[in-house]
C-alpha cells in the first residue's frame, strides 16, 4: 500500500469514527480507542482530522495521545506481549522474567523484534496478583509465568496467525 493511499484510508476511517462518537460528551478517548482497535495505533496524520472534528487544537489531541501509555503513535509488531512489572509480580520473580524476556527477544520494553513479530511492553498490574508473575497477550492473561513458560508463549505465538490488536 502506498503512503498516499494509506493516508486516504485513515481519513475515511477517522471520519467514520468521529461521526459515530460526535454526540458523546468528552469523546476524545473513545475515538482514540476506536481508532487503535481498528488499526493498532494512532497515526500522526489523523490528529488534524480528529482535532477539527472535535473543535480542539492539534496540540491538545497530541497532548492526550502522548499522555496515555496505551495509545501508540507507531504500529506495533504482529503480537504484543505485556509483562507486569508491579509489586505482586516482583514478589514472585518478575524482575528475572523481564530480564529473560529482553534477552531472549533481544529488545527492550517498547521495542519490536527485528522480524516485526513481537512488541514487548511493560504493564502495571493486570489484577491477576494472586497468581503472579502475570503476562498478557491481546485479551488473554497468563499466570505463574517463569522463563520457561514465557518461551512457550512466544513459541505458540510464532505458530499461530492470530491477528492481535
Amino acid at each position: 500500500m502506498s503512503e498516499a493511499s494509506s493516508q486516504a484510508d485513515h481519513a475515511d476511517l477517522v471520519s467514520d469514527i468521529i461521526a459515530a462518537h460526535q454526540d458523546q460528551p468528552g469523546a476524545l478517548l473513545p475515538i482514540l480507542h476506536a481508532l487503535q482497535d481498528a488499526i493498532g495505533y494512532v497515526p500522526g496524520d489523523t490528529l488534524p482530522i480528529i482535532a477539527s472534528g472535535l473543535n480542539l487544537s492539534r496540540a491538545e489531541v497530541h497532548g492526550v495521545v502522548t499522555f496515555y501509555h496505551y495509545f501508540r503513535s507507531s504500529p506495533p509488531g504482529r503480537h504484543t506481549i505485556q509483562i507486569c512489572r508491579a509489586e505482586a509480580c516482583q514478589a514472585m520473580g518478575s524482575r528475572a522474567l523481564e530480564e529473560h524476556a529482553r534477552r531472549s527477544l533481544n529488545v527492550d520494553f517498547h521495542q519490536t523484534t527485528g522480524d516485526g513479530e513481537i512488541t514487548l511492553l511493560p504493564v502495571y498490574c493486570l489484577g491477576n496478583c494472586a497468581c503472579s508473575p502475570s503476562v498478557r497477550v491481546a485479551d488473554r492473561v497468563f499466570s505463574h509465568v517463569d522463563a520457561e513458560r514465557f518461551d512457550e508463549i512466544v513459541k505458540q505465538l510464532g505458530n499461530t496467525a492470530v491477528e492481535v490488536k
Partner: peptide, 26 residues
C-alpha cells in the same frame, strides 16, 4: 462504560474526571 488507557494516575478522582472529559489525566 468508558475505558481508560493505561494511566495509573487516572485512579485519582480528579484526574479520572479530566480523562472522562477527553483530556490528559492531570
Amino acid at each position: 462504560v468508558r475505558l481508560g488507557a493505561g494511566a495509573y494516575i487516572c485512579g485519582e478522582e480528579t484526574s479520572m474526571l479530566e480523562s472522562l472529559e477527553g483530556k490528559r489525566g492531570q
